[in-house]
């Protein structure tokens, strides 16, 4: 395939960025989107240009590092991560726009790489459980109802990639935070911090400059792991409960 790429180039966090246009040829439909970008970068390096910087790590859809807005959609046209998106989703001759996650809380570091440490600080505020150290506890010592286990697991799938924030017109991190809160709050292991977790994580989220939720639902559509929109309602329920009970 032969493609025209319009890619966001920005040398430093302070520099003015702009879209740059490149042509790539010889792209196979079996390549992943990131392999297509690798091909572009090899050509750029051979030509003596700077390669396009983009985040990636596992390339198997589990780490949450890859993060591109492709043709206006976080992670592109399929419900998956950018690294698991394949070129068969595009056609020969297509023009593809590639932009970084856009949000005040995710400043651009370079080209397509953004700083997502705001998520780490939200996690630090409450995304943990207090456990006694020592030998692993007996697995059946703490029974968890099946429905709760499923609910926790559904939310544990969040890989923290930030697609929800990128897709949200308000740059809101409610879907991410709700996934983390719901995952731990429903389990007995998370019970000791149940109230403080939701209060602290929401406070940290607001302090990072993420926007407020207006329930547009763009986040849940973009999420590569299918965290559903009602998760936000579940977190709001936890928040109200914690506000009434206190820490």
């Amino acid at each position: 395939m032969k493609l025209t790429l319009r890619v966001w180039r920005q040398r430093t966090p302070e520099a003015e960025g702009a879209m740059a246009t490149y042509e790539v040829d010889g792209i196979s439909a079996d390549m992943s989107f990131l392999e297509m970008l690798d091909t572009l970068n090899e050509e750029l390096i051979l030509a003596g240009d700077d390669p396009v910087a983009f985040d990636h790590d596992c390339r198997e859809g589990i780490c949450g590092a890859c993060s591109l807005v492709i043709n206006g959609e976080a992670h592109g046209p399929e419900r998956t991560t950018t690294c698991q998106l394949h070129m068969r989703s595009f056609r020969d001759g297509d023009t593809i726009d590639i932009e970084p996650w856009r949000a005040a809380a995710f400043p651009v570091v370079r080209d397509l790489v953004v700083d997502r440490s705001a998520f780490d600080r939200v996690i630090q505020a409450g995304g943990y459980v207090s456990v006694p150290t020592g030998a692993a506890p007996e697995a059946h010592a703490t029974p968890v109802p099946k429905a709760d286990a499923d609910f926790a697991f559904e939310h544990a799938e969040c890989i923290g990639c930030g697609a929800c924030v990128a897709a949200c017109p308000n740059g809101s991190a409610m879907l991410f935070t709700s996934a983390k809160v719901n995952h731990l709050n429903v389990l007995p292991q998370g019970a000791p911090e149940r109230e403080s977790r939701v209060l602290d994580m929401v406070e940290a989220m607001d302090a990072e400059g993420f926007g407020g939720c207006t329930n547009t639902g763009e986040c849940a559509v973009a999420c590569p792991k299918g965290i559903p929109l009602p998760s936000i309602a579940a977190m709001n329920r936890e928040y109200l409960r914690a506000t009434m009970r206190g820490r």
Binding site: W8, R102, A105, P169, G211, N215, G217
Partner: peptide, 23 residues
């Protein structure tokens, strides 16, 4: 005000999926 501040840069191309009522 908060929402606009949280999303200062627009995308060159954006595919919106929210309904008319929502937007």
């Amino acid at each position: 005000r908060r929402d606009i501040a949280a999303r200062p840069a627009k995308y060159e191309r954006k595919r919106r999926r929210a309904s008319y009522a929502t937007r």
